[in-house]
Design a protein around this nucleic acid. Structure first.
Lengths: 247, 247
DNA sequence: CCAAAGCAAGAGCACTGCTCTCGTTTATGA
DNA sequence: TCATAAACGAGAGCAGTGCTCTTGCTTTGG
């Protein structure tokens, strides 16, 4: 049995420091060259240790990657929460947009980390359950925004097709029992669509298509907000139509 | 100078066959284990040739990957077009849904190929312009559906914020000069959001969140259609509200 | 018919993840 | 206090990778 976990000697402290140093260097290489170029040997080399020694701290390359994934989720979650808190005084729509733009900004600033967590999963690698709580942070944040709006002034309740009812109620029970299933459903869809927008920009699908990604993203995200029932931003000169449709 | 391209001897035919065999075996390995596990040596081994011989046909691993990427785009485009043609008699909304569901079905059937083209780009690899036309097929298909709807019965024209106007007009000029810029803008957004939905399901972000992905996807895609101006599917018992918002 | 190009094969380089062994250091329990 | 067990760093080594270079052979085209 290992007894290192709760030990509190000089060795335990050293272990913590070395582990952190490995993760730092690995994160450096990840940010520089991407996940698949991340090399255990290169990390060890840079740290002045031999590669086999590194396996005392991470039993495999995938375990090191998992640690980086969790850190990336946390970093993204922190950025989103910071943006949310900075817009705490504003209305739900402004907070929604603030969170979405924080996600985009973080993604543009950490493209390889973003690809690691929201791009295609690393070959043969399946994320362990350890990553679940960290991954949920942004989602929880968006739920919170919608919840505030719902409690504050009531929210539009979209209608659902009959065959989606059971699924919608199950999702609502799992994610936000205090919200109507209709709202939770469109929220989950908007959540996925947000990452479609970010991913397309980040992975180059918008090349030669969308130039001014900033304003395009803001508009698309406003649409998403509208879809979940938050009012459409009716600033600007055009005040004729409240939404993206009028028939 | 090489003269192989237009030559028509036994050697040229052999070259074509070997090239196809390499791509087939590579596609097999790609489908089985994913892009990063694709090994030139393994392909050569399976084909009974030595690894260096393979470089006569593909100058690098990335070039082989590029060929597979183009094939994947074409395969996806073909599937989408087939689904579209099969729904040729139906209205625009049905065709829209048919195309979207074909994309999803193809993605679920070819997860690694989908990840290759719409997931995070392979490490250090940047797609050459060769892939652009193949990549555009699904987009063109969606544009066509919306164009038909627009020409047939007129389409809802969403309002745009002032700062998005120039970008919207540029996009419309590039993609569909015969469509209103507002429609093109929401269409591009819907296009990206479609891939957000598919990617989230495929890459496991819906694990423990969405169970009945089939009906959820259909609903979300109907929402997207509604967003671009196609009418919302008002079948089913609930006929009270035509859209996901009502205030 | 012969020079030029295409081709398969092999050896080799530098790199990877990972394992195993070997002394050494540290920590813990009797 | 002191022996035993665990943790550790270092090194060698295995199997695999992409890619290059050289060596002959075959096909092709002027």
């Amino acid at each position: 049995m290992t007894r290192m976990s709760t030990a509190h000697g000089a060795r335990a402290r050293a272990r913590i420091e070395v582990t952190a140093a490995i993760k730092d260097e690995a994160r450096r290489q990840l940010a520089a060259d991407g996940a698949a170029r991340l090399s255990l040997r290169a990390v060890a080399r840079e740290l002045g240790m031999v590669s086999s020694a590194l396996y005392r701290y991470f039993p495999s390359r995938d375990d090191l990657l998992t640690a980086l994934i969790i850190d990336a989720y946390d970093s993204l979650g922190e950025a989103a929460e910071a943006a949310h808190d900075a817009a705490a005084g504003s209305g739900p729509l402004q907070r929604w947009i603030a969170v979405c733009e924080a996600v985009r900004r973080w993604a543009l600033g950490h493209p390889h980390e973003y690809a690691l967590i929201y791009g295609s999963p690393v070959p043969g690698y399946t994320a362990p359950d350890t990553t679940v709580p960290a991954a949920a942070r942004v989602g929880l944040l968006l739920i919170g925004v919608v919840r505030d709006a719902y409690r504050g002034l009531g929210l539009a309740r979209p209608s659902l097709p009959a065959d989606l009812r059971p699924e919608a109620e199950r999702m609502a029970a799992d994610l936000a029992p205090d919200l109507p299933p209709e709202v939770v459903t469109v929220l989950v869809a908007a959540w996925a669509q947000l990452y479609g927008l970010v991913g397309f920009e980040l992975f180059g699908q918008f090349n030669r298509v969308v130039e001014d990604r900033e304003v395009f993203f803001r508009y698309a995200v406003g649409q998403l907000a509208h879809g979940v029932g938050l009012v459409y931003p009716q600033r600007g000169p055009a005040a004729k139509s409240p939404g993206p449709h009028n028939d």
